[in-house]
Design a protein around this nucleic acid. Structure first.
Lengths: 209, 209
DNA sequence: TTTCTTCTACTGGTTTTCAGGTATTTTTCA
DNA sequence: TGAAAAATACCTGAAAACCAGTAGAAGAAA
């Protein structure tokens, strides 16, 4: 098997150099480039074959998440590993959703990096250990504040999220609008929010929609 | 290394039997039980050591996502692999968030199952190939319909999601409430929704909040 | 410099929500 | 079977949102 042509993208040149040094003895890959912004990377990709990209999220011009998506759209066969300091769940999830094949924190060990590279190249999605924890953890926190909803309340909640008015909902469910109003009011109370807009946002955050 | 004590949970007894047969020759694991609902599983776990659970999402009493969370809270060392037919992104994501160590579709090959088991046991999160695709795919579809928002609109959108009224927002941004109203109206138009409730839901779906 | 976009602000009228209650009837389940 | 929880329904008035259209000012881009 040929060596994987690999590029490193990070806004700190030091990190690029560090990674180059760290990886130069790897038998299965060959660092063919290092870039400190997205534009450079994109123009390089246009004229050079690359198999693996180690990509930072924080870049001066295009953020790594968007960049990831752009690359995947054009060159779907390239494997992209995100190498970042961001520990927020939402960022991790979004990179994955944008097609990244893995997510590592920058303090990951070389072993983990190796492991993720080979795993990702084989088509897996691979996370470093801390990242696995981050992904799994938040649920409990979220669920702690999650109010218990009755069946009817859940139903009305989702209809509200569809932009329906109490009137509409009442018609749909063969209820009095006043009843729907009551349920709506109970929902707002249970979630401790001010109005339906915030209710929807809260419900979404707690994955109830 | 000892064999992994493994249980299978699925509402179809046939699937349980099938998996047992399929896995009985695996050198690294030993099937110690098969259950067709969550309650049975939970009471078994209370008095028997288990290292690996192959878990279905659709169960008659407790759904697999919730069950997963309950197990992880009590027995955090148990590895849980979800084995399901559900191909909806949201379900996959939620099982992972609830602590599952992997997600496979039931039509996965034995090879994939083997691969995921060993990967998951080592602390990874592992998906079967189709699942990787599902996770990565939707972005484009979502982003296609995403309206372009101006800076002000984004700002007001997120304030609306906090449950603030036009009045509140106007005060906060030193604007006329009428102006805020206009922005709100433009947002509702751009997203092609009926009201703020639906607006928030739509914005959330498109990861704008 | 002109055009386009964005941000700003207004009029006037209708509909809906929100906040404070109260109260009866079903379900649920211990 | 009896209590608790859930679902149903009502009242009132104020506040807020929604609808439809218009339009000037500032800034960016062509």
């Amino acid at each position: 098997m040929n060596k994987l042509r690999t590029v490193i993208v990070d806004d700190h040149p030091i990190v690029i150099e560090g990674l180059k040094t760290l990886l130069k003895n790897e038998s299965n890959l060959e660092i063919v480039g290092g870039f400190s912004n997205g534009t450079q990377l994109l123009s390089y990709l246009d004229s050079n074959p690359v198999e693996l990209i180690l990509l930072d999220v924080t870049l001066p011009d295009i953020n790594g998440m968007d960049l990831c998506q752009m690359i995947k759209e054009k060159f779907s066969t390239i494997t992209i590993l995100i190498l970042s300091n961001h520990t927020e769940r939402s960022i991790i999830m979004q990179t994955i959703q944008n097609g990244a094949n893995g997510y590592l924190l920058k303090n990951s060990s070389l072993d983990e990096l190796r492991r993720c590279i080979s795993s990702a190249v084989m088509g897996n999605i691979c996370y470093s250990k801390e990242v696995v924890e981050i992904i799994s953890r938040p649920t409990k926190n979220q669920l702690r504040n999650t109010p218990q909803l009755t069946r009817r309340e859940k139903q009305i909640l989702s209809l509200l999220a569809e932009g329906k008015t109490s009137q509409n909902i009442a018609q749909e469910l063969f209820l009095s609008p006043l009843t729907v109003d009551t349920h709506r009011r109970n929902l707002i109370q249970k979630f401790e929010v001010k109005n339906v807009a915030e209710l929807i946002a809260a419900a979404h955050q707690q994955q109830l929609l």
